[in-house]
């Protein structure tokens, strides 16, 4: 009976305050979408890190005809220098940091280049001797890149040592920046949502002050009086959270999974299922936001 009564109260409250309830739904929807987007971006970064860091290597580029560094003043790398580098790689001091290494000749480099830029006209104007040969080193711990750099950069015949991870770091820092922006917007919207929920509850409490006054007088418990208001806010916020989750899932499914992932097959993208993992977090967050802000408001505007 009491449950039915509380549910009836919620229903009438939602109907009476429809426009405010809709605005609460929209604001929580937008704010939680941004929160979720930031979460998905972070997931994407972790995913890419895991995927690329396995593959990405430190490249020791050797001198070619086109090299301009002072180390290459003597001209292209000689076989002797190459052997020297190879033996340095297998020396115990370096070997402990190296997982595996292989030599990429100029011909190999051209092949990889052609694969990578298959659709670009630049392929036709590039020849093998324009590309440097290199040693590709896969490290046990990629963080120890500096050791390779110090050991090889001044060895004769070495043009430069490049940590390819750093190229990715740039991409990741852009993505991190984007997620920081998303979190910032989300925080702002969350503040809006909290204030709006507070205002809605306040209005709702005001428009039903007759009922609550009578409830108080006849000895209704605090829970029976306050629960309809709290649940009103929570229901609106949950609807907003569900909308946000759906939107994120749609984006992950149709934009990322069916579009980006098809175009860039060699990159790991998050899947739509992972977007579903964000949903419970968003819903919980919505409940928490609405619950806390309405309880605080009621303490002030609904004396029991």
């Amino acid at each position: 009976m009491r449950l039915a009564f509380v549910l009836g109260e919620i229903g009438s409250g939602l109907r009476r305050n429809l426009s405010m309830v809709v605005s609460v739904i929209l604001v929580t929807f937008v704010s939680l979408t941004f929160v979720g987007a930031a979460g998905l971006l972070q997931m994407q970064i972790t995913q890419m890190k895991g995927y690329w860091y396995d593959k990405v290597q430190v490249a020791v580029f050797l001198c070619s005809d086109n090299s301009s560094s002072p180390n290459c003043a003597a001209g292209p790398v000689t076989d002797e220098q190459k052997k020297n580098i190879e033996s340095l790689l297998s020396s115990p001091a370096i070997k402990q940091y190296v997982n595996s290494s292989n030599y990429e000749s100029q011909a190999d480099a051209l092949k990889h280049f052609k694969e990578q830029f298959a659709n670009s006209p630049i392929v036709d104007s590039v020849s093998a001797d324009q590309l440097p040969s290199s040693f590709r080193i896969n490290m046990v711990n990629p963080e120890k890149y500096q050791i390779i750099n110090e050991s090889f950069s001044s060895v004769p015949g070495v043009d430069s040592v490049v940590d390819q991870r750093q190229l990715l770091e740039k991409l990741f820092s852009v993505m991190n920046g984007a997620s920081v922006v998303a979190v910032g917007i989300a925080a702002l919207m969350v503040v809006c949502a909290v204030l709006l929920i507070a205002t809605t509850i306040r209005l709702s409490a005001f428009s039903r002050r007759r009922e609550t006054g009578i409830m108080r007088l006849v000895g209704a418990s605090k829970a029976v009086i306050q629960l309809p208001f709290v649940l009103e806010g929570v229901i609106a916020a949950v609807i907003g959270a569900v909308l946000a989750s759906t939107t994120l899932w749609l984006v992950a499914k149709f934009f990322v999974e069916d579009n980006l992932a098809q175009q860039y097959r060699d990159t790991a993208f998050i899947s739509a299922n992972q977007a579903l993992l964000v949903a419970p977090v968003l819903i919980l967050l919505g409940i928490l936001l609405a619950g806390v802000s309405s309880l605080l408001t009621l303490r002030k505007y609904l004396k029991v």
């Binding site: 009976m1 009491r2 009564f5 009922e211 009578i214 409830m215 006849v218 418990s221 029976v224």
Partner: peptide, 21 residues
């Protein structure tokens, strides 16, 4: 202090509903 949108019966019943009768 009656509830204007409720009938006489509902107004009196309200006092019992809210305490869970």
């Amino acid at each position: 202090r009656l509830l204007p949108q409720k009938t006489v019966f509902a107004n009196v019943a309200f006092a019992m509903q809210v305490i869970g009768k």
